[in-house]
Nucleic acid binder design. Structure first.
Lengths: 343, 343
DNA sequence: TACAACGATGTTAGCGCTAACATGTTAGCG
DNA sequence: CGCTAACATGTTAGCGCTAACATCGTTGTA
């Protein structure tokens, strides 16, 4: 047994060099070394140089966890989306990531799989990581999640759709988008359009577009028809959608799909079946994915500015984090009807 | 000036309830409250119950940063990919995420934009977050990055391609995939195939496939032809690729595209131009994306098991983190030639 | 009956960093 | 030349949590 008084308990921690060691090598105090990293202007150039050399020499990697604990703020932004399978969210994430990374923030990505209980759990975890702000897709949350978000005293951004948001909100009016496409179809003379979506209670934004579609049809005295599929967005499921429409509504003259994946799948399938589009049946989508612009005939769809939505959302959050005033907490990014030859 | 001895300096930190407060309410010490969260079995059921109630009552959210600092391990897994625009990486990420999340790990996602300097910086940042392991796409790193990864004393998984990995490695042999497709094309009787890729030094795996393609052609005494495009994977760029082949190599009878996005774009463009595929020109891709299976004619391509690759990679890393032996640090997930009608 | 073994809980001492406050040093100015 | 402001750097005390070690009762067993 050692009698060495200085030897107390077992050492813990990693075996990485620490700021204190860097400081010792550079012959300064650790706070000066800290300032070299966090506020270099406040340190004399020659001192700074010595500290940087010491860091280089020791292979120092700053322990960001310790820094976050001490300063009570991390540079994390929590981003919570319902799915990674859907290109739409990926593109929003790209916009968010580009903007946040440029500002020195790291994204913590969470995937709810369209389950708001899971979302609540993710919010708790991310708050536990002292994230600086939270960005979440959609306005639908559990009551407990809503409470957490309201009381967490950080910027909270809800993206994708517009509505009764709790803090910041960037998105578009999905119901209006549904109305827009329905008006287009009626304007083109179609009299028996069918809306085809999948799991509309999960993908409730598609449900909102259906609500708009339905509203327009009812106002014109046309009965709204709906087919609900199982898979959210795949070419294959779109083909199935086309077949179901033919089976259930043989008189249908147009299909308003909930998204471009389904619509493109139907379009490609129609080609195989030898159906003329729009002669035998018109097809419309939503999203404005590149694919829809590359099929024949080109797909009529609604373009949503997804990456721009991510960027704008991130900018608003950054403004809030910089304590700049946010004049418009709610921003409508709009959408564009893109006329193809499929209607 | 206050003379109160207990009042020292300004309070810092968040204003969230702490474990100590929970412990006080529950009438236990804070380590007991800590154990309720981290090792519930070690705490008497009735005590545990009281602690949980206190947590609920105070709305306690564990400070994971403090926990990570104290225990010198976070439950982060760093995942570094070159792009989010490419479905391929998204699918690998999906596989990784599903597996890691189920095991209670949080993914830290980094995007290098095909820049290995950026990768090095991301590795530093993620090491600073005390990530438990790192997963990175590819074997190409800066020397400094390689050193960081070698010395960080954590599992390091390199995914996508096989080769001289530093620790764990899950992927497929891209050169062999290139050979496989080239052999297929020669076997079908094509004698002037052109390889079309984009930015092959960035997307060096596509470059490796080209190397395989080239090797097979040269062995048969056929001159390898190459066209290099600017954009990595878009339908539009594929269409451009087709046009460039026609312009530069009018005698070409087949195009071996670096990926399915390019190939599908070319296929759809051929349709518009009224070109017969494979009559006028054969088209092949790589990846096995759903789109390729939905165009007409169906695309001949090579299927890579991307989500499975992510899952397998995550399982290997988890095994290492659990101190279980990893018998095969390098695993080949293979690929499958999928014959369509486009060749 | 003694004592090891175990279970439940507590005490102590940091993890590596930075906010707040403190001190010393130099420049600027009437 | 004295005073202040601005700059450069240091000292101290945690941030909230958990590893390591300590303690105490309760069993089981020789």
């Amino acid at each position: 047994m050692s009698k060495n008084k200085t030897q107390s308990r077992q050492r813990r921690g990693s075996h990485q060099p620490t700021l204190a060691q860097v400081a010792e090598v550079a012959g300064v105090s650790s706070i000066t070394a800290s300032r070299v990293l966090n506020d270099p202007e406040r340190v004399n150039a020659s001192t700074r140089q010595r500290v940087l050399e010491a860091m280089e020499h020791l292979g120092y990697v700053p322990n960001l966890i310790a820094g976050s604990l001490a300063s009570a703020r991390s540079r994390f932004i929590a981003v919570i989306v319902p799915s990674l399978a859907n290109t739409v969210f990926i593109e929003v994430i790209k916009g968010l990531q580009a903007t946040f990374e440029a500002a020195g923030y790291q994204i913590l990505l969470g995937n709810t799989d369209y389950d708001i209980e899971r979302e609540q759990q993710l919010v708790r975890t991310f708050l536990g990581w002292s994230c600086s702000a939270l960005v979440t897709a959609g306005l639908k949350h559990t009551p407990a999640c809503r409470r957490l978000l309201k009381e967490c005293d950080r910027p909270v951004m809800e993206v994708m759709e517009l509505g009764d948001a709790m803090d910041l909100n960037v998105g578009l009016d999905h119901q209006e988008a549904g109305r827009c496409m329905a008006r287009h179809l009626l304007g083109r003379g179609y009299r028996q359009p069918v809306y085809v979506g999948a799991r509309l209670s999960d993908d409730y934004r598609a449900g909102m577009r259906y609500a708009g579609h339905r509203e327009v049809l009812q106002a014109s005295g046309i009965e709204p028809l709906l087919i609900e599929l199982d898979q959210l967005g795949s070419l294959e499921e779109g083909a199935r959608g086309l077949e179901q429409v033919q089976a259930h509504y043989p008189g249908a003259d147009a299909i308003h799909f909930a998204n471009d994946d389904l619509a493109s799948g139907a379009l490609l399938h129609a080609q195989r079946l030898g159906l003329r589009v729009p002669g035998d049946i018109a097809i419309a989508g939503f999203n404005g994915l590149p694919l829809g612009q590359y099929v024949m005939p080109r797909l009529t769809t609604i373009q949503s500015p997804r990456e721009a939505m991510g960027r704008l959302a991130a900018e608003q959050v950054l403004r809030r984090l910089d304590h700049q005033p946010v004049t418009q907490p709610q921003q409508d990014v709009g959408f564009t009807l893109m006329l193809g030859q499929s209607t």
